[in-house]
Design a protein around this nucleic acid. Sequence first.
DNA 1: AAATATATAGGTAATTATACCTATGTATTA
DNA 2: TAATACATAGGTATAATTACCTATATATTT
Lengths: 216, 216
Amino acid sequence: MKKKTKILIADDHSLIRNGLLQVLESNSELEIIEAENGKNALLLIQSEKPDIAILDIEMPEMSGFEVAEKVKYQGLAIDLIFLTMLNDETMFNKAMDIGVKGYVLKENTVSEISNCVEKVLGGNYYISPSLSGFLIRRNDNSASSATHKSGLHLLTASEKKILNLVSEMMTSQEIAQELNISIKTVQNHRSNICSKLELSGTHALLKYAMEVTKTL
Amino acid sequence: MKKKTKILIADDHSLIRNGLLQVLESNSELEIIEAENGKNALLLIQSEKPDIAILDIEMPEMSGFEVAEKVKYQGLAIDLIFLTMLNDETMFNKAMDIGVKGYVLKENTVSEISNCVEKVLGGNYYISPSLSGFLIRRNDNSASSATHKSGLHLLTASEKKILNLVSEMMTSQEIAQELNISIKTVQNHRSNICSKLELSGTHALLKYAMEVTKTL
DNA sequence: AAATATATAGGTAATTATACCTATGTATTA
DNA sequence: TAATACATAGGTATAATTACCTATATATTT
């Protein structure tokens, strides 16, 4: 008796889980297990050792991305597929960096999911066509000399520390007190970050800081 | 031969439509038709005259809410159920005002949908328990004058509109251009919102606006 | 030893946000 | 009719952010 391919579906929306189950169950080669949050997904990956995990990125307890990080860190032999509502380029790049094999948007058709699963089972990648722009841009960038989208690599340790506090909407005055340094130092760091990242405008830095940190 | 109850499912995500179909088809009393956007939903409501329409609010071409407005305006005999990702209190109140009979969050369980359909078919309302807070607050408002947690109820229509734009980190200047009004008007609205909500501090309003909108 | 990067701190100016005012026209309510 | 709420717009003041400077001490690299 041939061993079935085991697939984990992790999504907090039972409606979505149901839909996926429906699509995937039509292939009798597959054994399907489910998790309703990231924490359980990780536990099931560890105990049930599925071949593939389809992870919703936006989940309670632990995000799909966090699950992926831990899975990769622990060196578990599993292929990961991200399923998400948001076509966020930063998240997409982070997913590619971490070695995710499939990336599908929920707004795509049902058949995309089964295509994706088949491709990944065959050892290939599958990226939603809607995201091909991200993929092209990504290749262009790694070909030339590494212009990160986030630009975080350009920043020094102090600048990153301050960027974090900025992302929490702290004023320069508050940051200065927090770090026991002069407000002028904080202002200079902020200004330097802005010029390094080529940010200009009233709340450009705050906007950037929140965008960068919100997906972490 | 008894006439079947006809239900329209309108959602742009085929995954969701599939899930709903699965749940509702287990009841053989129901005849189900589908629409993948608001425009087609309205056309099908007019031509097929279903008894109930389950409308996704966030749809291309025409939102579920717009469909509901037109349906009510035309006096069509149909009960409406909103199915949405976002637990937006403003939208919820607008839905109740317009006479929507059911309001279910996609994050709720599948069984909620069938519960909801049954209740509405029986002539009752069905609101997701997750939204009971909205409902209570709504009742409190019409009765006494309660203190909302978010305080959004204290704001006028213009103030809410501006709060939304603030949450997108737009400057007063940008908001003024967007709305074709004076920057002073915008600044005054911002200031008034701050005092109404008892916000004080440098970016208090921005912080509040982002917190309120991020959980929707 | 010289050059470079970094953290620190000060100066100045322009723009913005908040915090107070006043005031007018309109619409609704008592 | 009088009172109230609201959207609009202006004035003034303070604090904050961004955008430019300069400058010093320390550590690292060449």
